[in-house]
Design a protein around this nucleic acid. Structure first.
Lengths: 205, 205
DNA sequence: TCACATATGTATCGATCGGTATAAATATGT
DNA sequence: ACATATTTATACCGATCGATACATATGTGA
């Protein structure tokens, strides 16, 4: 049997993406139910909202999941051992910066900017997947530097944690800078500079 | 004549600092009136609050001003021409990172983290002084690189905007990383790495 | 002593917050 | 045709939002 009952008048997946854009731009707490209801499918009622998603928090979790499975994939290269570590780092920086400056969605990265909600203990579990993703990306940068050392490309004295934190913090800062209107061309030039640090850490041969 | 009328039972300047800590940690919109009233002077009433500060927004502006005149001064070195540009950049990075990791107040920088409120046009003017401060710091980094070029220390081909954006975005990212628990020792090691970029841009002589 | 100025406590304002109760509308399965 | 399942629309819930009216308390200046 197909689906029974009266059919839903809006597209559920599309609604999640619209909610994701709102949460991306304003964060969890600042985005209100009425904003979500107005935006979704050109306007839905409260009961339709709760029948479809359960609660604001449940929808946020789905929106975050949607983001992690799409836009956040720009950092996947960090975990691809087929890619040489230097390329993996540079590719990730450029892909992420480009995505964060794209039009068609809010500037910056939802994972980086959904941080403010954390302090309130009542919403700690809401911010947890975002924090986990940041931690994962940070670890990915560190891992690439470690790969560079293990391959003999980088000097044994290279501080992988310091270097990884540098790449990671720069990329987090891009989210704020992008909201302030910095253009992708400037970020790309900055990344070109930043990658010189990798070369400076090379083994003298 | 001194002040007339019934004397205020709480210290106004101290109240501004307590409010600043709340706004610093949670942002403008997420911090509620009842939180502020509870925190200030061990608890004050709504009329006392409005008699003293006028409105939530007015208090926020005073809190931001208080922050800019104290903690935010860590970046003042960027505009001190007495300091050689390389030292000015490094000093600013280390001072700010240290401040952001200090205990006794929220982690990170209030100027960097008070961004989310911006999207809502109703609160644009509230976020404006924060955006102005970020813009000023960004310009300060660029200016130091330009000073380095003008002094003949850095190569003429150095892209000052790219380099300044790199320092600035890294420092903005420190706010998020600090909230995630990264320690000051790691940031200091990252800054040591980052400063090698300045040396890499030196004039070959 | 007493008018004046300011702060305080109680009680409350309308608006919005996230969330629901109820019943009518619209599909499927038999 | 008719029972069942699901979404819809209207109306509303208690709680909290930022902000205020009003009367009382407590100080200064003449």
């Amino acid at each position: 049997m197909a689906q029974m009952g009266r059919p839903r008048v809006f597209d559920r997946q599309q609604a999640i993406e619209q909610a994701m854009h709102l949460f991306w731009e304003q964060g969890y707490e600042t985005t209100s139910l009425s904003q979500l209801k107005t935006q979704i499918g050109g306007g839905i009622s409260a009961p339709s909202f709760y029948a479809a998603f359960g609660s604001k928090e449940a929808l946020f979790k789905e929106a975050v999941q949607c983001y992690l499975e799409s836009y956040a994939r720009v950092t996947d290269g960090l975990w691809d051992d087929e890619i040489p570590p230097r390329e993996a780092v540079e590719l990730t920086l450029r892909r992420s910066a480009k995505m964060q400056c794209e039009s068609g969605h809010p500037k910056g990265c939802m994972v980086a900017l959904g941080t403010m909600s954390a302090p309130k203990p009542e919403h700690a579990h809401v911010a947890k997947p975002l924090a986990a993703s940041r931690s994962r990306t940070h670890a990915g940068f560190v891992r690439c530097v470690e790969r560079g050392i293990a391959m003999g490309e980088l000097s044994e004295e290279t501080d992988a944690r310091a270097m990884g934190t540098m790449f990671s913090s720069f990329l987090l800062g891009v989210s704020i800078s992008a909201r302030d209107g910095i253009k992708i061309s400037v970020f790309n030039a900055s990344i070109t500079e930043l990658m010189k640090l990798w070369d400076a850490a090379r083994n003298e041969r």
